[in-house]
Amino acid sequence: MILLGLMTEVIPNERIKYHIEDGRNVEVIFEKIDENTAKVTEIFDPEKQNSVEMQRDGWYAILNNFHKYVENH
């Protein structure tokens, strides 16, 4: 399933907020730890079909793929 969304706020190197077509909101926060490290926090409205734990695992998988991509580029 691919969900479309609309970016509602983009602050480079700091924050991205978007609204998914199903009505949920997502916020991604980037915090610089040091010159080569950042903490990425993702806050999302859960959907009602799957457990919060299953959804969290899915978001973690997305972040882990992002982490691998960043390390290799």
Results as ranks from 00 to 15, higher is better:
2 I>R: 05
3 L>P: 00
3 L>A: 08
3 L>R: 10
4 L>M: 08
4 L>F: 13
4 L>C: 00
5 G>R: 01
5 G>N: 09
5 G>I: 05
5 G>H: 01
8 T>F: 07
9 E>S: 11
9 E>M: 07
10 V>L: 13
11 I>W: 03
11 I>C: 02
12 P>M: 11
12 P>I: 10
16 I>T: 05
16 I>Y: 03
17 K>L: 00
19 H>A: 10
21 E>V: 14
21 E>R: 03
22 D>W: 03
23 G>V: 07
24 R>P: 01
28 V>S: 09
29 I>C: 06
31 E>R: 14
33 I>R: 15
34 D>T: 08
34 D>S: 14
36 N>Q: 08
37 T>H: 15
38 A>S: 15
38 A>L: 08
40 V>E: 11
40 V>Q: 10
40 V>S: 06
41 T>R: 12
41 T>Q: 12
42 E>D: 06
44 F>V: 02
44 F>P: 03
49 Q>D: 04
50 N>A: 05
50 N>G: 00
51 S>D: 04
54 M>C: 02
55 Q>M: 12
56 R>N: 04
57 D>K: 15
57 D>N: 11
58 G>N: 12
59 W>R: 05
60 Y>V: 14
61 A>Q: 13
62 I>D: 04
63 L>F: 00
63 L>C: 03
66 F>L: 12
67 H>A: 08
69 Y>P: 02
71 E>H: 00
